[in-house]
Design a protein around this nucleic acid. Structure first.
Lengths: 179, 179
DNA sequence: TTTGCCATGTAATTCGTTACATGATTAG
DNA sequence: CTAATCATGTAACGAATTACATGGCAAA
């Protein structure tokens, strides 16, 4: 049994607070807005939409290109109830890079450092991307924008910390291999 | 199809580099050493051990309380080959707290701040625990210890960054609700 | 002798991705 | 007309957790 009830359902309900939209659009919106800490695939999305509709939390209107899903009153209630519930779990995410660092002594010379360097390389780009996003959100007059901004700042903080860790770890690794 | 080949198998092989041990002990060792970024349950562990043995990567010796699993030469080779392969994926972990923050405007007053405060509360304890661990690892003469230490420092860096983010987010949230 | 830890495992269930398959609509 | 995008979905697969079930051994 999974520790978590269907979180995908709540991500969907959450995205539909923005406006009614198609499943396809939903995926794109999720990717652009919460993509840096939450990702959904079609294989999850469509079955979830049907389940939500069966439960009366989402209603589907129109057909063809004009087909959209929207939150029902029950959907809003369910979402608000979920928002009020304590955050469950705090599960450590499995980090493959860290596992390889942990076992680094058994790797060939330079191998682990290369992994860290590879990770390091993407972080600056990620950071500028976050910073551009923050500027956009800061200029967004939507009443949601301040909340969105907090999540972006979270991304910035974590990315910076990770970058600094890489910069600290790389010399250490090189030094370890001098022997 | 999962993006990742069985990472559990490599975690098991990795833990067995320390010494031959039972599945039960394996679980405990994993929890204590890499538990902050990697967690395995018995439901994964035992089937994985059998699979590894069937593949000739692990050999099982003794029986009863004296039963232990150890790495074979093939197991060492497989582990080293995996260590050398680039880290796959960089998947953003689904963060339920962030999703609730993102949707914070739709929550009742104080609700989102309470979630952040709850998270904040555990971080100091976590941090002191990490710092104690770091001191232990720093004093550990094992040739593995410097690598272990890097992963602990990663935990410290991330925890501090998260704590600082909470401290920044809380006043913002309170201010948002003044309206 | 009974409590607790060591030890191994299974069953049910959910989560989630990837690859595949199909078709409508729209812009060039 | 044709390529790209919008749109919906299914099938196969594997990862992973939780709860359950069982038993030996050792110490108090």
């Amino acid at each position: 049994m999974p520790a978590r009830e269907s979180r995908t359902g709540y991500a969907v309900l959450g995205a539909l607070t923005l406006e009614p939209m198609s499943g396809y659009r939903l995926r794109a919106v999720l990717e652009q807005s919460v993509g840096h800490f939450w990702r959904e695939s079609y294989g999850q999305l469509y079955p979830t939409l049907r389940r939500l509709e069966a439960d009366g939390l989402v209603a589907t209107e129109g057909r063809g290109r004009a087909r959209v899903h929207r939150l029902t009153e029950a959907g809003w209630d369910e979402l608000r109830a979920w928002l009020a519930r304590p955050v469950t779990g705090h599960e450590p995410t499995r980090d493959e890079l860290l596992l390889k660092v942990f076992l680094g002594r058994h790797a060939g010379p330079g191998v682990t450092a290369a992994h860290v360097a590879a990770r390091r390389r993407v972080l600056d780009d990620l950071l500028t991307s976050f910073e551009r996003t923050e500027a956009e959100v800061a200029a967004d007059p939507s009443p949601d924008a301040p909340y969105w901004r907090l999540t972006v700042r979270h991304g910035i903080a974590m990315t910076r910390a990770l970058r600094d860790w890489c910069d600290e770890a790389l010399p250490t690794l090189e030094q370890l291999e001098d022997r």
